[in-house]
Amino acid sequence: MHIDKKDLIEFDNGNMNTQEVIEFLSHLDHCDFCLDQMMEQEDSSTDTAPSYLMEQILTKADSGEVQLARAANKASRKMQLLHYSLQTAAGVIVALLLLFSIPNLDFTSLHQDTSSQINKTLPEHEDSRLYQFTRELGQNIGDGTSSFIKYISDFSSKLMNGGK
């Protein structure tokens, strides 16, 4: 036998005694039809909070501790945004630095045919090519940095002087 609407209403209102509640829940555990009916009734019910709670909720929302928690949450989000913005700016600066400092390097000078080389030690001319490469790398990084700084300086002076 299935649960009728009257029993569902009594269960929602809390009018059942302990034994009836146990029997009701036991039946719902075994009967999917009644469980579906109860779920439909729960979905269609328009229970609202008691009216006396509205004033308490509004008072609590206006209290200092809730406002402080809300402000802390906003500040935390702003700090996260600042942190991510700084990370992005640092990445862009490093990318621009690399873009301006390394375009003149010849990486093909380091490529060597390893199949024809039997000896693992670097001959004298290979050692000088490596030295030349690192010297050019350092020089180009320095040149790129100075050109980047000059570009930023020109840009900032134009901003400060109104585009002049």
Rank of each mutant, 00 (worst) to 15 (best):
S146D: 12
L28Y: 01
P103K: 01
S147M: 04
L58T: 11
Q87P: 02
F33Q: 09
L81H: 05
D4W: 01
D36G: 13
L98H: 14
D143F: 03
V21E: 09
P123M: 13
K78P: 04
V21H: 05
F11D: 00
E65T: 04
A95L: 09
S115F: 14
R70D: 09
F148R: 01
S157C: 03
I102T: 15
H111D: 15
E126S: 14
T18I: 14
D106Q: 05
D32Y: 13
C34G: 00
M16T: 01
S63W: 00
T134P: 01
Y131E: 14
D47N: 13
S45Q: 09
L122T: 06
D47H: 14
N119W: 09
K120C: 13
P50Q: 05
T145S: 07
L81E: 05
T18P: 09
S85Q: 08
G163M: 02
V94R: 10
D143G: 02
I93Q: 08
N119K: 12
M160A: 12
Y52H: 12
H111E: 15
E40P: 03
L25G: 06
Q87S: 06
Y52M: 07
P50V: 06
T46W: 10
H125I: 09
A95Q: 06
K78T: 09
D32G: 10
H83E: 05
M54R: 15
E55Y: 12
K164H: 10
S116A: 12
Q41N: 11
Q132H: 09
T121H: 12
L159I: 01
F24D: 01
N73F: 11
E65D: 12
S45T: 10
A71V: 07
I22C: 10
I9G: 03
I118T: 12
E65W: 02
Q87V: 04
H83V: 04
G163T: 02
D43I: 10
H27Q: 02
N140G: 05
K78I: 11
L86E: 05
E40F: 11
S26L: 12
D12R: 14
N104F: 05
G138A: 14
M38A: 14
L58A: 10
R77V: 04
V94Q: 13
S109H: 09
M39A: 15
T59L: 10
D47I: 10
F148N: 00
L130C: 11
L68C: 07
L105D: 01
V92K: 09
